[in-house]
């Protein structure tokens, strides 16, 4: 008999070493998240996956599963906090969904819809973030970066290239490119890199693709992100270390 913990009243089995998030997703239970990705080390930075564990809040992507835990996730208190976090992410960058080519395929947008983020909530900061269009095939639109570091981890852990990094502290933290010039054209990034596939928003884009996928055929056009979690479960890497169901764009 495997150990279990309680998640919103359901009994969730887990294996030793799994986090609350890993065990929940493996069991077909969705916990909202942005920076978690089963192929990379847990990061715990976006805090959207925060749950109540035995009455105290914790990031479920870094919280080790333990027998007998009482975890509350899909409750108004937690969803309200998640809503606020998503509002802050929208306010901090320049997210113009109406003309963004990632619209419909964007995890942040899908999460916003799913959490019923109906208002801005905060005054938009309108940061000045120029594009890096220097690479012949890849565009970087920093306006939409949410600092999840998925590209940083993918480039480092899977691609072995360290193309991306975060620089600065606090509100000044931002995504940079690891080149003397600071430009993507001077890195060895390739279209086939894992870092090209994991951006949950519209920062790292293959050029000249744009709106070639029509409305209605984009990932989140038909069903909300929470409903798709069941299709994707178990959201964990296979023996080869890949999880195709986890990419922002299938």
């Amino acid at each position: 008999m495997s150990d279990t913990f309680q998640l919103d009243g359901a009994s969730i089995p887990f294996k030793a070493g799994q986090t609350v998030m890993q065990a929940a997703l493996a069991g077909g239970h969705y916990i909202p998240h942005l920076c978690y990705h089963p192929e990379f080390k847990p990061h715990g930075s976006c805090k959207v996956c925060t749950v109540k564990v035995n009455g105290r809040t914790a990031a479920s992507c870094t919280m080790p599963a333990e027998a007998g835990l009482s975890v509350e996730s899909n409750i108004e208190e937690m969803n309200g906090l998640r809503r606020t976090l998503v509002q802050m992410l929208f306010a901090e960058g320049n997210h113009f969904c109406p003309s963004c080519e990632k619209s419909g395929n964007c995890t942040l947008q899908a999460l916003g819809y799913d959490l019923e983020v109906h208002t801005a909530g905060f005054r938009h900061m309108y940061p000045d973030r120029p594009l890096d269009a220097s690479h012949p095939d890849i565009l970087l639109d920093f306006n939409r970066c949410i600092l999840c570091e998925l590209c940083v981890r993918a480039s480092s852990e899977v691609d072995g290239k360290n193309v991306f990094s975060l620089a600065g502290r606090g509100i000044a933290k931002h995504l940079i490119v690891n080149a003397k010039s600071g430009l993507l054209k001077d890195t060895n990034i390739a279209l086939t890199d894992k870092a090209m596939q994991v951006c949950p928003v519209g920062v790292i884009l293959q050029k000249r693709i744009g709106f070639s996928v029509p409305i209605g055929e984009r990932r989140y056009d038909q069903r909300p992100i929470s409903a798709q979690a069941l299709d994707d479960a178990p959201r964990q890497a296979d023996a080869s270390g890949s999880c195709t169901a986890c990419e922002g764009t299938p």
Partner: peptide
């Protein structure tokens, strides 16, 4: 200005 050209048909219709 500064936006990628493939974005223009969707952006300017706003």
């Amino acid at each position: 200005q500064g936006r990628p050209y493939w974005e223009a048909p969707v952006m300017v219709q706003r």
